[in-house]
């Protein structure tokens, strides 16, 4: 029988289904919508066909109360998933829609420390989306414009709302789009680097979450942080769900 991992975030839901051998049979990502639990059930399909259902993410407790057999935090889920995809991984950087975190692993892959951003959208996917709106560009084009642009203007505002008006006024003042896009990416990149530095960057670093899926962005981050590499899995939004499913493969008895 198969194992289902389900990552219920505040913005998206991801599922991963593994067969007995631990191979990924299916993976899917979708918006959480107004009723995430219902959406999660729909995505999962026939719940009785799974040997275990492991929930993670913001909605894990709700899922556990409803249909899941186990739960783990997104910290552990991302650690398991990243380590599975990159067995030498020592640091996980996860930037999702509404939070970001850094997880430190030891040689055996056990979580030894972690840090999460505090109560604030700055430094998350939401920040990038809003800035891209201010620039009038889709996310990918914002990254492309930033990579092609130059100049060293900086955003002064830490707050997402003020940063957006700053972007708009920079454009109105005649700053080139590329330079403003750079300012946006540099702002979130420097913030991320601070988060990483607070735990100490131990390579290899695996970059997961929705923001890692934006084409060109991981390379931009690596360049600016002076890192040789940020390892990005093929479907970075799926790593949490994958980790949850992997936990289900190993777990012998129900937890929580």
């Amino acid at each position: 029988m198969t194992v289902l991992g389900i990552d219920i975030g505040s913005r998206t839901i991801a599922i991963a289904i593994l067969n007995e051998k631990g191979e990924l049979l299916a993976g899917q990502v979708s918006d959480s919508g107004p009723r995430p639990l219902e959406r999660a059930r729909e995505m999962a399909g026939n719940l009785s066909s799974f040997r275990r259902i492991v929930a993670t993410g913001y909605g894990r407790h709700g899922a556990r109360a409803d249909f899941a057999t186990d739960l783990i935090t997104e910290i552990k889920a991302h650690a398991l998933g990243a380590r599975h995809l990159f067995p030498s991984c020592r640091t996980v950087l996860d930037i999702g829609g509404q939070d970001s975190k850094v997880i430190r692993l030891d040689e055996q892959g056990r979580v030894v420390d972690f840090i999460m951003n505090d109560r604030c959208a700055a430094g998350t996917g939401k920040f990038l989306e809003i800035m891209a709106q201010g620039l009038g560009l889709p996310l990918e084009e914002m990254v492309a414009a930033a990579s092609a642009g130059d100049g060293e203007i900086t955003l002064n505002s830490m707050c997402t709302v003020f940063a957006e008006s700053e972007v708009v006024s920079l454009l109105a003042a005649g700053q080139p789009v590329g330079a403003v896009a750079r300012a946006v990416l540099n702002s979130i990149c420097d913030r991320t680097q601070n988060l990483l530095l607070r735990l100490g960057i131990e390579p290899p670093v695996v970059f997961t979450g929705g923001v890692a899926a934006i084409p060109g962005l991981p390379a931009y981050f690596a360049r600016r942080m002076g890192l040789p590499d940020l390892l990005v899995p093929p479907r970075p939004q799926l790593v949490g769900a994958l980790g949850a499913a992997l936990y289900g493969m190993k777990a012998k008895k129900a937890t929580g």
Binding site: H61, I72, T73, E74, I75, R110, V111, M116, D118
Partner: peptide
């Protein structure tokens, strides 16, 4: 954990505490 008396950060605190316990 840095927090006040409001309930708005409970979800995040719960995640951090649970992840700490997993560790």
């Amino acid at each position: 954990v840095e927090t006040d008396y409001s309930e708005e950060d409970t979800g995040q605190l719960r995640t951090r505490v649970e992840a700490f316990l997993e560790m």
